[in-house]
């Protein structure tokens, strides 16, 4: 498999269309990254104003997804993309869905702050902020890997999700412990659990995007297989 260059078609307009499509995903990813950053700041500082901004901005993310999907449809209909071009359009089409879902997870965290359901325990709150920072870094790396079409980086980000799963598990154990001693606040705890779960899901969504990057660059579908099998597949392709 070869390196992918978007700007080498005979048709300059097609070059431009693919370049714009790729840039639009990066723009959308950037907006969602900022949303996640704001949500975590709002959580840390109990900043309702910022949380409200995050909730309102989610509409923009939704609209971006629709626009990118429409552009993918147009390109397929008009340009009949093949090989890496086709994989690019398909990967973008799917990645946008996951990026939009990341936006939804972030919105859920922001709503928790708006409702005033913040964790009473500092430990839980700090744990959530730490997990949040971790997934934010993962999202940033994922978008970078996409921008550079770097399958190797995508692979290591994919493996890195294990750490987030582990962090989430520890946080959950701690939360259950504290819930036992605070049964009166169960409804509030449920909301907090959902928000914790949302943070962990951001990691899963990044993992999906990494799988699309690998598909785009290597032409191999690495979904739904063990990490070991995935590494094997990639080794074959090197």
């Amino acid at each position: 498999m070869q390196t992918i260059k978007l700007n080498t078609h005979i048709s300059g307009r097609f070059n431009q269309e693919l370049e714009n499509l790729r840039n639009s995903v990066l723009t959308m990813g950037g907006v969602v990254e900022q949303q996640l950053c704001d949500a975590i700041s709002a959580l840390r500082d109990n900043n309702r104003g910022l949380a409200e901004k995050v909730v309102l901005n989610d509409i923009m993310v939704n609209n971006m997804e629709v626009q990118i999907d429409e552009e993918c449809t147009r390109i397929i209909a008009k340009r009949h993309p093949a090989a890496s071009d086709l994989r690019l359009v398909l990967a973008i089409n799917k990645a946008t869905t996951d990026i939009e879902r990341i936006g939804d997870e972030v919105e859920r965290i922001a709503k928790l702050i708006l409702k005033g359901n913040l964790p009473v325990s500092e430990d839980i709150k700090n744990g959530m902020i730490a997990t949040g920072n971790h997934v934010m870094e993962m999202l940033r790396q994922t978008l970078n890997a996409f921008a550079r079409m770097d399958a190797e980086a995508a692979m290591s980000i994919h493996i890195g999700d294990q750490e987030i799963d582990e962090q989430y598990k520890q946080l959950l154990t701690q939360a259950v412990e504290e819930m036992r001693q605070d049964t009166d606040a169960l409804p509030q705890w449920l909301e907090i659990l959902w928000a914790m779960r949302s943070l962990e899901r951001v990691g899963d969504r990044c993992k999906n995007v990494c799988e699309y990057i690998i598909y785009l660059v290597k032409g191999k579908d690495v979904r739904h297989i063990s990490r070991h099998a995935m590494q094997e597949k990639l080794r074959e392709l090197r």
């Binding site: 498999m1 070869q2 080498t8 078609h9 993309p81 093949a82 090989a83 890496s84 071009d85 086709l86 994989r87 032409g219």
Partner: peptide, 13 residues
């Protein structure tokens, strides 16, 4: 969808 050769890739795209 997944040509092996760079030349094929360049031609069909």
């Amino acid at each position: 969808t997944r040509p092996k050769q760079q030349q094929t890739e360049e031609y069909i795209t």
